[in-house]
């Protein structure tokens, strides 16, 4: 059962990696505007022939 001594740090380290990735995303401003992306994904990209 001593695998626990390896598995536990690995699990924590994996979590910590994700945590650092998350913190980097926050610092780069990805979470500053939480409204527009949620709305924008509803809009189609049908773009389109110019009508003049």
């Amino acid at each position: 059962m001593n695998v626990l001594y390896i598995a536990l740090p690995i699990a924590i380290a994996m979590g910590a990696t994700a945590l650092f990735a998350c913190i980097r995303c926050i610092r780069s401003g990805q979470f500053d505007d939480l409204e527009t992306p949620a709305v924008r994904m509803l809009l189609d990209d049908e773009d389109s022939v110019r009508r003049d």
Partner: peptide, 27 residues
């Protein structure tokens, strides 16, 4: 609402010389 965003971001395709617009709703 979403439609405003859609309209504002689609408008450049209809106006010569206006290339892009990006709306940030939170501010």
């Amino acid at each position: 609402c979403a439609a405003c965003l859609w309209l504002l971001e689609k408008a450049p395709t209809r106006l010569e010389g206006w290339h892009r617009s990006a709306v940030q709703m939170h501010d």
